[in-house]
Design a protein around this nucleic acid. Structure first.
Lengths: 251, 251
DNA sequence: ACATGAATATTGGAT
DNA sequence: ATCCAATTTTCATGT
């Protein structure tokens, strides 16, 4: 799994190491005190300190500090990585063209560099996405309301796709917006947009809007009801409360 | 910088290593074939394969595969990390309470483990945030429109804060929504909300809405103009085009 | 602790 | 390539 490593290499040794491994299938790491320059979407940033640089097989690059999930600097993919040895210091530049941006890391003092191979990668299982929720509720619309008949999934409108488009027991059209987690004001506005689009299109003011989610924030509920839309608590899938009850030790 | 490391440790050796370093100030890594279970906001996931586990000083945990910026599994902070040796296999469980979720990593075959110290961390410079754009345009509102007078920054409304609240040369009120990057439909709706709130509050239909951004998407512009709102291209700050022109080698 | 909004969000899917 | 919407977004901030 650990393919190769060097401890406290000088600039030449680090350059040799990186040239050997960067374009291989290995994940390359460098722990070093370094300067980092970024220019692109964020205009520009400059950093200096001890960081852990990770360059993955797909060319993505991230530079981690000692706290936080997010890297201090990163580049999702790169079109070009190149090394330059200048003035006794090695610099790695990762550049991409769309959007145009680049990150340059200049190594000042290197702790170690290593190449790691992560070969075995199985598939994964994910349950509880909004898409699954949509399918589940399309099959059992009575979970939202008795007598509800689903007409369309992801019905396109000029302002986006309506999650569930349905007709209620009294024949009124119903726009349903689903949220997997706690619905907030943003979700209310999304629903409002869709309802307005349908009313506009059909020239029919009698269109209902339902926000279906396991939870909703206070301000969101207030606003929702203030504009004549409805909230339905839907617990078709495991919610956060389930996690509170279950203990890891059960596994 | 590299404090300690073990290569291909067995479960007991790995446990000893992790107990020694996990609560220290070091960043701990383990490269291993492992099983990963997650339960929480995403309902649940299960993974197996070769991953690189990183546990930082603040207790945040991330599990990286060999591609992509985002970890396969992660936990922003944890309230509790514990190790269990069961059936000859070591399992690390990281749990947090709000929101309730946990990740459990069971190590099957370990490549190496290491502890890294990242001490030197200087401050950083970041330019080009929306907040800076707001301050810059508040000082020079003529960049948006001649004769514009800024009345308020971040004026609160029931539906959120208005970036710039102003009066135009003809005395009409103007709501300005700023976007640092390319404005999309979401931004248009945000502006629409604010304009509606002001018209409502003042019972005055003659309130203008301006979306100020360096770029705008086609659909967003169409919708914006369709509802009588305006777009102003603002290039008060370095935009993406600057990055295209500049070369890393200039540094 | 909760809610809101920005961000180099990233990622996947549709057009 | 562009755009839109979901995501365990993360993070900072205000209440």
């Amino acid at each position: 799994m650990l393919v190769d490593h060097v401890i406290a290499p000088d600039a030449e040794a680090l350059e040799a190491f990186l040239r050997r491994h960067l374009r291989s299938d290995a994940l390359v790491q460098v722990a070093a005190e370094c300067e980092v320059l970024y220019h692109g979407r964020a205009a520009s940033t400059a950093d200096a300190g001890d960081y852990l640089l990770i360059v993955k097989r797909d060319g993505s690059l991230q530079l981690h500090g000692d706290t936080g999930i997010k890297p201090v600097n990163w580049q999702p993919q790169v079109d070009d990585v190149h090394l330059e040895l200048d003035d006794g210091r090695l610099a790695l530049t990762a550049q991409r063209f769309t959007p145009p941006e680049w990150v340059r890391v200049t190594f000042l003092a290197v702790g170690f560099a290593q190449a790691v191979e992560l070969t075995e990668t199985s598939g994964f299982v994910l349950m509880g996405t909004e898409a699954e929720m949509q399918r589940a509720l399309a099959l059992e619309p009575e979970r939202i309301e008795a007598g509800l008949e689903v007409l369309e999934l992801e019905l396109p409108t000029p302002v986006g796709g309506i999650d569930l488009y349905a007709r209620d027991v009294e024949g009124r059209l119903v726009v349903v917006e689903l949220k997997r987690g706690r619905a907030n004001q943003e979700a209310v506005h999304q629903l409002q947009r869709y309802v307005a689009a349908v009313r506009d299109q059909l020239d029919d003011a009698d269109v209902r809007g339902i926000l279906a989610a396991p939870e909703i924030t206070g301000p969101a509920l207030e606003r929702l009801q203030g504009i004549g839309l409805e909230y339905r608590q839907v617990t078709a899938l495991p919610t956060m409360d389930d996690a509170r009850d279950e203990q890891p030790s059960l596994f």
